[in-house]
Design a protein around this nucleic acid. Structure first.
Lengths: 191, 191
DNA sequence: CTTTAATTAGACTGAATGGTCTGTTTTTAA
DNA sequence: TTAAAAACAGACCATTCAGTCTAATTAAAG
């Protein structure tokens, strides 16, 4: 059944972008229908409700995307801090991130309070990327007074913030200028 | 006409909290009516539309609140960096901020893309607090390689991020742990 | 070819949406 | 005291919302 898969996947792609940009409450079924170009019956054949659609989007679109953003190059002898800095800078090349901010942050902010299932799915993704950063940082020597878990949260938070700065005048340079202070600080933590 | 003022002010207070927590699209007129406890006719007597109400909330509630959060004690000989750090820590005492995040960040994220008027009102507030931080930092000596405007944006961004970390398990301690790295870094910039 | 299941199709539903309209009451000023 | 304006009150409106339903079409399996 190749058709079924592809239709379902197209629906998820369309909903992801709509919810990423307009939020959950800002995305109506009619917008989804229009974007997908399919009739209502088809949509509700694959998903039983709007909530189920978006829950699937979180698990099948948001999660892998976040996992990709925070994928660290297995560079052999490079210091973890430098690998992390590379990742932070690499984010500046993803136009969507610069334009619309971190999708995890956006969905979290609006949707965590709407529904427990949303909240737990989003928290799961957050914890996953946090663990990835913790694991990375544990591989190299870092100043002893630093709590790696807390530092990881600080890194995520700072990236979220840097990507949130007024979406109107957002640009690659603006992001890089802002995270320069983050990377600058991270460098000082090497041991 | 004291009554007129107070009714209008009560409406703004109610709408501010509703929009702060639920967002613009997440706040319906019926919720506003219920929260204010007034009939529709009264509401639409003071404001011609939902948009006008929320625009007034941004200008008359959000702006002064943000101005208050970033009000720096005129301590005579204290270093600007230390005054800024005090402010960052003082934020941890505002339960609403810890619980729901920075209202400027929340409204900005959802509403800037909905309407140009929202966007410009929000941007104005952002620029105002940014200028306040820039002004503060210019008063003391800071390492020469630092661009104060960019640093100010980084500070705001990091606070936004720290206040955004999963609203579920948000707490004063979690915030303080996260911004510790920010304050730690800021201290190193004193000259 | 025939049967059965998967998928497409969209008219329709009840509830909720933001907003209007017509009064009535209260307040203010002359 | 009276006229006019401000404020209150809520029934009402068109539209949109998420979701249902029945039927038609297509695809898969025997």
């Amino acid at each position: 059944m190749p058709k079924k898969q592809s239709t379902r996947e197209e629906i998820l792609d369309a909903i992801f972008m709509l919810v990423y940009i307009n939020g959950y409450n800002g995305t109506s079924m009619s917008m989804i229908l229009k974007e997908c170009g399919i009739p209502k019956g088809s949509l509700y054949h694959y998903f039983k409700s709007k909530k189920e659609m978006v829950l699937a989007v979180i698990k099948e679109r948001l999660a892998p995307r976040m996992d990709d953003f925070y994928s660290f190059s297995n560079t052999q002898n490079k210091h973890s801090i430098d690998i992390l800095i590379d990742t932070i800078i690499k984010i500046s090349q993803k136009e969507q991130l610069i334009k619309y901010g971190c999708p995890l942050n956006r969905l979290n902010q609006e949707m965590s309070s709407i529904d427990k299932d949303f909240e737990s799915a989003i928290t799961q993704i957050y914890n996953h990327i946090k663990e990835k950063i913790i694991l990375l940082l544990h591989k190299s020597n870092i100043k002893k007074e630093i709590n790696i878990e807390e530092l990881s949260e600080f890194v995520i938070a700072s990236i979220w913030g840097a990507l949130s700065l007024s979406p109107t005048q957002s640009s690659k340079d603006r992001y890089l200028n802002t995270v320069f202070y983050l990377t600058n600080y991270l460098k000082s933590l090497k041991n």
